[in-house]
Computed example of a mutant assay.
Amino acid sequence: MCSGRRTGPMATRRMNYADAMVDTFRICFKEDPHFTVIGNEVLGIGPTRLQFEPLQAEYPDRIYFPPTSEAAFTALAAGAAMCGHRTFAHLGVASFTYPAVSSIANEVATIRLSSGGRIKAPFIMHLNHGVVMGTSSQHSESPQCMYWNLPGIEIALPSSGSEFKGLMRTAMNRDNPVMLFTHGLLYHVEDDVPEGEYTIPFGQAAVKRKGKDATVVATSLTVGVAMQAADILAKENIDVEVIDPRTLVPLDKKAILDSVAKTGRLVTADETRLNCGVGSEIAAIVAEEGFRSLKAPIVRVARAQAPVSAAPTHEAYVIPTPEKTVAAVKKVMA
């Protein structure tokens, strides 16, 4: 459960998530003359989108803005990757990938197996996910589990800019297709990002906060939600351990099971839906493999099983919040 691997001194720089992405791309461009970025609004549609412009000026022949046909340019980027060009494809808002599911499911996910390992697929697919203030149902999906059900794709969920850098650098050194999910509200969030080369191994969770009373497993933006909840609960002498899996494929089951063995209680906090969501799968794993450790039933905090409208009151009702997470922890502590 290491925090990451660095080569060289541990120098960091304060930057937001979007800047961390640009910093990582710049390293990738310098390292690999064939590395290519394809996609529109790579850093979202907010003010952070402007942070991409200097990189465009530096590498105009290796950054492509395709027509808004996700099915077409997903297939194009996948083909380029299979021909040896490491490709980062920003597929936009996660629900925009649905027209491209045929290529992703039938070609990208299966190519290593169907070719007997002869064809590599160094293809990184980047998706924005989550409820992002008034964007309604077509722009608010979190389909991580849909793609978790496609064997052959590795899945990473950074919760900060430093994690994006570490996970992206690891993805660059793999020959399997990788999906990176970024929550749309993370682009402006700042943290200390290691300078130079920095990697986070896939399949190694991070203990974001140590505790002894209850375990909260959270992903992506909801890691911050869980940390806020833990701060609130600490004032009531409830000591919460927060685990960030960082990758779903591979999943660090041991870190989760070890934490539950210590605390005896589990809450999952995640923005995928309650039915068949990330929290549901983690709950199933703990129920099956760590049942004897549990002192109380597992509680899931997840998106409600409903479409999302653009109304702020509806958004607040369906998403995980610190208050809902606090209530869930108190329920397992009762």
Rank of each mutant, 00 (worst) to 15 (best):
R273D: 12
A71L: 03
Y59L: 11
G4Q: 02
T268M: 10
R265E: 01
L274T: 01
P320N: 13
D239M: 10
A269G: 03
E289K: 15
L113K: 14
D258H: 06
I200P: 01
L233H: 02
Y198G: 00
P99G: 01
E271V: 15
D239V: 03
D23Q: 15
I63Y: 07
F96G: 13
V332T: 10
V260N: 07
I104V: 02
A121T: 12
P297R: 13
S162P: 00
R86Q: 05
S115E: 06
T68E: 15
N176K: 08
T74F: 15
V216P: 09
V42D: 00
V178L: 05
E41G: 12
S95I: 14
V278D: 00
M10S: 13
G211D: 02
P67W: 04
G224K: 05
P250G: 01
V37T: 04
F291R: 11
N106A: 11
T272E: 00
D61C: 13
M146Q: 05
A75Q: 06
D252P: 11
L43Q: 06
Q138P: 10
S160G: 07
P60F: 10
F73N: 02
R300I: 14
S95T: 10
Y98Q: 11
L266E: 01
P194N: 09
E70L: 08
I298A: 02
N149W: 11
A156P: 03
D231I: 12
D32T: 12
L127T: 09
G44V: 12
G130C: 08
H183S: 09
G224H: 06
S160M: 12
R300S: 10
S95W: 07
T219Y: 15
L185N: 15
F88Q: 10
M146P: 04
E289S: 14
A229H: 06
P322H: 05
G224R: 12
L248K: 02
G279T: 06
R273V: 15
S293G: 14
F291A: 11
E141F: 13
D175Q: 11
R174C: 09
F291Y: 15
A121D: 08
A205L: 04
I256A: 02
V37C: 03
V240A: 01
V223L: 13
A296D: 01
